[in-house]
Amino acid sequence: MSSQNSSTELLQQLELKQYEATALANLLGAGRTTAPSVSEATDIPKARVYDVLDSLADYGFIKVIPGRPKQYQPKSPEAILERAKENRRQQYEDYCNEVEGAREEFLEEFGPRYEQADEEVTPTAELFSVVDVGDPSETETRQLYQNAVDEVYVITNSFAYFDDVESAVKNALERGVDVSVLFLDPGKLPETKATVQEDIVDRITSEYPEIDNRFSEAVLPWRGTFIDPSMTYDSGKAIFLVEETDVPNHQRQAAITENGSFVAGMKRYFDLIWEYEISDKSSSKNPHP
């Protein structure tokens, strides 16, 4: 790939069209110059080159110097990057304003339809929704930590995905949310996963000592995260998946529920394991409330 082509492709990441990226790449190397010179150096048709340069000026990437002939001078690479971000920010703000402008009409049109359809949804459909395991499930898990008001409970084998949710965990702790993690006893894990678990537990113990953790002596039938359970069944949300040892994670789906009764049942199950079926490796912290 030639240097010119490489430069053009790099500039196209700023959402420039082919001719725009080609012209800007030429200007950044040539400095202040005229439209005919850009056309000659880049093979951009003379009938198009002025429109192309005017577009670059509208983006704020180049300056136009009046005269006969008119000349064009590129901004610095740093200034171009900053302007590209500002352009995108302005586009986003304009989009948000357009959406807000349509809010009243949108809600008036679709609100009644949604409410009528929601009344007809079966109880089974209301109980669960599903997402793929991986980035989608980790995104939902982070959202649970962000939404938690009082408590987060985790049932996990090794907590191998801790790095991907750590910032959300830290934020929850800083808000005063209690976090409790129930690990599977390392003796029940393959050696590689046991090593991962050991590293994660060491990190949690040293960096987040406020997190309670214990180890289940029995293999658990499901793992996941749930927040703010209520014994009056009026709050709580969870994401979990059942153990399917013959199915790799990337082929699985996780279930999401906001059913307060179901989340309360998960909490009762968690408490039974936490209090009565823990191994010798469990934390020496105070018993779970």
Rank of each mutant, 00 (worst) to 15 (best):
59 Y>M: 08
60 G>R: 00
61 F>G: 00
63 K>A: 12
68 R>A: 12
71 Q>M: 13
72 Y>A: 01
76 S>Y: 05
76 S>Q: 02
77 P>H: 01
79 A>K: 06
80 I>W: 03
82 E>H: 07
83 R>A: 11
83 R>Q: 15
85 K>A: 15
85 K>Q: 12
88 R>E: 14
90 Q>D: 09
91 Q>L: 14
91 Q>H: 12
92 Y>R: 11
93 E>R: 08
95 Y>S: 09
96 C>A: 10
96 C>Y: 14
96 C>V: 14
97 N>G: 04
99 V>T: 07
100 E>L: 15
101 G>D: 08
101 G>R: 03
102 A>G: 10
103 R>K: 14
104 E>G: 01
105 E>I: 03
106 F>S: 12
106 F>D: 06
108 E>P: 00
111 G>H: 06
111 G>W: 10
114 Y>D: 10
118 D>Y: 15
118 D>T: 10
119 E>K: 14
122 T>W: 10
122 T>G: 15
123 P>R: 06
127 L>N: 00
127 L>H: 06
132 D>W: 07
132 D>V: 05
136 P>L: 02
138 E>H: 09
139 T>F: 11
140 E>T: 00
141 T>E: 05
142 R>M: 09
143 Q>A: 13
145 Y>F: 15
145 Y>Q: 03
146 Q>L: 09
147 N>V: 01
147 N>H: 11
148 A>P: 01
148 A>K: 02
150 D>N: 10
150 D>L: 07
151 E>G: 06
151 E>K: 04
151 E>W: 02
152 V>E: 01
152 V>H: 01
155 I>N: 03
156 T>H: 02
157 N>W: 13
157 N>G: 11
158 S>V: 03
158 S>K: 03
160 A>V: 08
160 A>W: 06
161 Y>R: 05
162 F>H: 06
162 F>I: 07
163 D>R: 08
164 D>I: 04
165 V>L: 01
165 V>Q: 00
166 E>G: 01
167 S>D: 13
167 S>F: 07
171 N>S: 14
171 N>T: 13
174 E>H: 07
175 R>V: 02
175 R>C: 06
176 G>F: 10
177 V>E: 02
